[in-house]
Each structure stands twice: as C-alpha cells, then as structure tokens.
C-alpha cells in the first residue's frame, strides 16, 4: 500500500523541482559580497546561493542568511559582539570580519541531482543553516534549485490535500 510517506520518499528531485518556479542563483567564488547580494536580490525565491568556479562547477553553497549576518555585523555590530562568549565564536567572528568574497563565506558544496529522491535531499537539508540546495548534473554544473518548501509540498500533495494547491494525486478516484 502506498502511503504519503512512501510516496514522498520516492519522489524525485526533478518532480519536486517542478512544484514551484524558483530560479537558482549562481555566483563565482571570487565575486565580491555586494555583487552576491545584488544577485540574491534579483532572484528573491532562492535562499541558498550556488558558488561556482570558472568552469561553472559547484564549489560551495552560500545561504542568504549567512550573507545577511556578515553584512549586518558591520551595520549593527552590537548584536553580534555581545553574543560572543567563547573562543570558537571569537574565531568565527574573525573569519566573518575578513570575508570579502563569496568564496570566503561559502559552505561545503552540497547538492542533489535530478534523479535523487526527496529523501536524499532531506538528509542534506536537515540542518538549521541550509534551507535549499542547488541541483547539479553529473559534471557538478548547476541546473536548478530545490527549496525546503518544495519538499513540504511533495508531502502535502502525497497526503491528497491538493485542493489547496489545485493539483491531482494518485489517490483520487
């Protein structure tokens, strides 16, 4: 018997990606943070930016929140300085202060492929600092973007609550 959970697990990233039209954001590792912020502003749906090298291959991901934090620690420093209470936070602050490019701020190059499943994506997205992932091909070139919201909608559809969304599920008679 197919349950919403089993349907959700086996849904591919390609199918999930089609639910919402969120364009991916791609920047180069050596792009300055102003350029990165402008790119994020031009594509407001994506919350994680893909960072690529000169061959357009994924080398890192940069959550928009991380970019905001970095910029705002210079605007409202008191909010950040007061929260530093140990050596690790101190060193992280120093690293943030010195960040000038996307490459300085990016995280490891997490991604999924079109043929991967929602389960694979959730395993990677199950951390508080990442709310979306770039979709890459076999050569690690960015071909799309999958957001946590799309994962949520996969489950909603599988539960048959499509009336809210106007779609159809297999469960319909």
């Amino acid at each position: 018997m197919r349950t919403p959970e089993s349907i959700t697990q086996r849904t591919t990233i390609g199918e999930a990606d089609a639910l919402l039209e969120i364009e991916s954001i791609t920047v180069r590792a050596d792009d300055d943070l102003q350029h990165v912020a402008e790119a994020a502003g031009a594509h407001p749906g994506a919350r994680v930016i893909a960072v690529v090298d000169h061959e357009e291959r994924l080398v890192g991901i940069l959550p928009v929140q991380r970019l905001v934090d970095n910029i705002y620690l210079k605007i409202v420093p008191e909010e950040f300085l007061g929260a530093i209470t140990d050596v690790e936070q101190t060193l992280a602050y120093a690293r943030n202060m010195g960040a000038r490019t996307a490459g300085d701020l990016m995280l490891e190059p997490l991604s999924v492929r079109m043929e991967d499943t929602v389960r694979d994506a959730f395993a990677l997205l199950h951390r508080p600092d990442i709310s979306g992932l770039p979709i890459t091909d076999d050569e690690r070139r960015v071909v799309g973007y999958i957001d946590q919201l799309e994962l949520l909608l996969v489950w909603v559809r599988a539960c048959g609550l499509e009336t809210l969304l106007g779609g159809q599920t297999e469960g319909d008679a």
């Binding site: 210079k74 300085l81 530093i84 209470t85 140990d86 936070q89 101190t90 602050y93 120093a94 202060m97």
Partner: peptide, 17 residues
C-alpha cells in the same frame, strides 16, 4: 587569558575595521 582574548579580540577587530 582566554576570557580576556574573547572579551577584547572581537571588539578590536571591529574597531580597527
């Protein structure tokens, strides 16, 4: 010493910047 560094280090970086 560790506490001193944590207290003073970030402020220093910020003021210099």
């Amino acid at each position: 010493n560790v506490t001193t560094v944590v207290l003073v280090g970030p402020i220093t970086l910020f003021l210099a910047a």
